[in-house]
Design a protein around this nucleic acid. Sequence first.
DNA 1: GCCATGTTTGTGACCGGTCACAATCCTTCT
DNA 2: AGAAGGATTGTGACCGGTCACAAACATGGC
Lengths: 349, 349
Amino acid sequence: MFVTGHNPSEQDNSAAATVSIRDVARAAGVSYQTVSRVINDHPNVSQKAREKVNSAIAELGYRPSRAARALASGVDRAVTVLTSNTSLYGYAETLGGIEEAARSAGVQVAIRVLESDRDQDVAAAVEGVSDPRAGAVIVLAFDRAGARALRALPANVSSSAAAESYLGRRAQKSESARWVWFDDTLAAQRATEHLLELGHRTVHHLAIPSTTNVGDRERGWKRALSAAGAPVPEVIRPRSWRAAGAHEAALSLLMDPAVTAILCGNDEQALGVIRAAHDRGVRIPEDVSVVGFDDVPTAAFYTPALTTVRFDFAALGRRAFELLVSPEDAPLTEPTLIVRESTGPAPRT
Amino acid sequence: MFVTGHNPSEQDNSAAATVSIRDVARAAGVSYQTVSRVINDHPNVSQKAREKVNSAIAELGYRPSRAARALASGVDRAVTVLTSNTSLYGYAETLGGIEEAARSAGVQVAIRVLESDRDQDVAAAVEGVSDPRAGAVIVLAFDRAGARALRALPANVSSSAAAESYLGRRAQKSESARWVWFDDTLAAQRATEHLLELGHRTVHHLAIPSTTNVGDRERGWKRALSAAGAPVPEVIRPRSWRAAGAHEAALSLLMDPAVTAILCGNDEQALGVIRAAHDRGVRIPEDVSVVGFDDVPTAAFYTPALTTVRFDFAALGRRAFELLVSPEDAPLTEPTLIVRESTGPAPRT
DNA sequence: GCCATGTTTGTGACCGGTCACAATCCTTCT
DNA sequence: AGAAGGATTGTGACCGGTCACAAACATGGC
């Protein structure tokens, strides 16, 4: 009853033998090429043939083989996301956005995490995804590891979330990587301006360790400071993106009475600062104002609720995926400052 | 110079034509089958041949084609993770664990998110991954959508994180899905006992909406309560896993002076409760004690620092992957109660 | 020295699609 | 009616591997 003589298993083969394009063709009374045309929506297929094929497909429960398709066509309809983290909010949300867009385009999403930013690990990861036949690649270049991986990719370029374009067959080396990113400069500038407007003499900046766009944020922060003629304090660089590092750094920072406003690299760090303030008996926002970045879902429930800059990471992810298909520049939602309880007027001296 | 006459592109073909097993064979002076044996670590290959092949591989920069392999062998070395969320802590960490284990086993990780728990969406997702040729499937059955998807999968079974076993060729319908999960009952029991020991008359439970293991947690909670002869209050069920729902629910719950201890479904909810307490002027832990579940990285920095039950989600993920290969039951780290500042002695009446 | 047995190597077919090109079928126009 | 031209359909080869089986080569026992 089966066509394939490949699998010699004699056992009760109730499990349906995998049905191929040829089986469908036979059942529909057409050639396999016609079936191929139908499943690929080619224009030149008669209505009658199309119907016959479609019902045969439904009847036999035919499902095209991704592998065969990839092999024959030379490209896999898949995207591999290269990221150094799966659980940090920004990364995870971006991944979600990519998946959403990819899913609705019928493209598979694979994920590959970068263990570290050491050359060896980066090289291994890049090696694993740099086969054009394996589909496209999107690098989450939020951190050094990502940025390095992006640089190491065949066609190079660098920024926040970048989309290496391999999807189409004709994508050649001439086609370089495309990228999307938020306007971090503007975001940082706005946040800083907000604090300045509240009367703070200056704003201290507790940064994320070595990011790609760290430059951007610092630029925005400095720009706002300079525009207001405020002094530019040295940037504080904790040892991690996490709350722990920020907490530790803030513990000493808060001893300085000149510090009345702190711009943090992300919400988690802001939480560390808030906690440090609590530990030191410093009131927020009465004594010190704190601003975060990201607007994680919990930020509104911190005590005090966090003033922060919201980024639409999911949109970033969707956009990164779309770039694989159409390289057109589409605007990304601008980051928005969400003012809550952690910022207030500068204390009177 | 090229063997494949398939691609007629005449352009400067500096981009290396994809090298196949046959090219390597020719360069090494052996048959393609021998090359296949080498790259698959077959035992019966002479040392000499192996070396020749390996150097030819290195020289030509050969990379096996995943697609061709999948097509020829009938199975793809890939796992698809079915999850309804990418950014919630537990999900994201579990995904990370799966990826880690899969990566070191040379297996690709794909991800497919479940949009909702509606039959239609679940069916679509299952349909997309239920092709045995496409590799294995791991379902993150933490919620209803996941549980349903798990049930809808060809070989069924249900629990927290489940590993549908298709990886090996011989995996047949007889091989049912394997699963791993935490001992939620014990975890809830321990947490409840902790509160009871602090002198609380009873413990209120603010649950996660309709989870697979909701039963387990409630059982543990009830067990501890009963064992202590404490009354069993009605379970509070907010409308989401998020802080918002818990915050809203807690706002009214905290008006009840009988409520002195709350066991929350997760840390985010606990944060919502803490915030609600702040809003109501209820002190934690002096007036009310709060316990969470998960131990998210920020829990230690809440004010007050959260007492919670830590789960090793990454280990859960790794284990789920391993189950695909070896169905042996290996113990999973037990959840641990981390006592911090949010729990304290019951207030004196 | 010869045969049995095990190891190493090679050949042809096949997996399930796509591609290039040729053949057949309709229409429409002169 | 015949030819031109587009629409529709079919055929053979190929993608890059694996599988089953056979051939060639060693090794060892009697």
